[in-house]
């Protein structure tokens, strides 16, 4: 843990507002998602500085898209392509017709670096996505996920730099989650399929073992940002004692 630094009154209230503005930033993202305004989210809430855009990362359980061009390709372009396919298949008048998104963020834990240039945060989301189907019903699905974010200050505005959303589970509304097969069927997991093939492929959080893998790790007080603290790929350190993977170890008999 970093030594506790002393601040003047002016410094301290500035830091209090920094933390508040960071929380507001991530809350605004929640409403951008409700509005499905992904392109605007990137324009308004993510890094703009050319150097930061190169190292920006959007991760999920299976790796990261790195660089804003790659992030846009996944997060905006592929999404719109899927929505157009859905619109065509459903004979819908508009894209997103009959869809509903909500990923509310709770349990905020924000650490502002001692130097005030970066911050790290963690949230939990009990979320849902509802996707209209061709038969006039919709696939309504609970989604549980932990959100870990690195923020960086650009021209006195806070921006999302690295975003990791580690899914724990998803379950169709009205269905009994405990009736799902024990082992996750990654090939047919709607969240993994949506994520596609990232720039850096790597299983960073396998919820088969609950939170045993401790990733994303909880943000702790820190002095200044270094790569090993990052929620981007450079900060991921696989557990050297990873043991067996899900479903392994049955040949001993």
């Amino acid at each position: 843990m970093a030594d506790k630094k002393r601040y003047t009154d002016e410094e301290m209230i500035a830091r209090v507002w920094d933390i508040e503005n960071i929380k507001t930033l991530i809350n605004k993202r929640v409403y951008y998602i409700c509005n499905d305004r992904r392109s605007e989210e990137i324009a308004d809430l993510w890094v703009k500085d050319p150097e930061n855009k190169k190292t920006a990362a959007f991760g999920r359980n299976w790796g990261w898209y790195v660089g804003m061009d790659e992030i846009r390709r996944y997060y905006v372009d592929s999404h719109i392509e899927r929505l157009r396919t859905q619109q065509r298949e459903n004979g819908a008048p508009d894209i997103n017709f009959g869809n509903l998104y909500a990923h509310p963020a709770s349990t905020g834990l924000v650490r502002l670096a001692d130097d005030g240039d970066t911050a790290k945060g963690m949230w939990y989301s009990i979320a849902q996505e509802t996707i209209a189907l061709t038969d006039g019903t919709a696939d309504a699905r609970w989604m549980l996920e932990r959100i870990a974010v690195d923020f960086i200050r650009e021209n006195d505005n806070w921006k999302i730099w690295h975003l990791m959303i580690a899914a724990d589970l998803n379950c169709e509304a009205g269905e009994d989650y405990s009736e799902q097969p024990v082992y996750i069927d990654w090939d047919n997991d709607p969240v993994k399929r949506e994520f596609g093939k990232p720039t850096v492929e790597c299983l960073v959080h396998d919820p088969t073992f609950n939170w045993w893998d401790d990733y994303p790790f909880m943000p702790m007080p820190y002095a200044t940002f270094t790569d090993d603290l990052s929620y981007g790929p450079e900060g991921f350190k696989p557990n050297p004692n990873k043991g067996l993977a899900a479903g392994e170890g049955r040949n001993y008999k």
Binding site: F97, G98, N99, T130
Partner: peptide, 14 residues
């Protein structure tokens, strides 16, 4: 209220 035939409806204005 949401139904599968509802036009896409976003959040109240931020």
């Amino acid at each position: 209220q949401y139904n599968p035939r509802r036009p896409f409806t976003g959040a109240p204005r931020i």
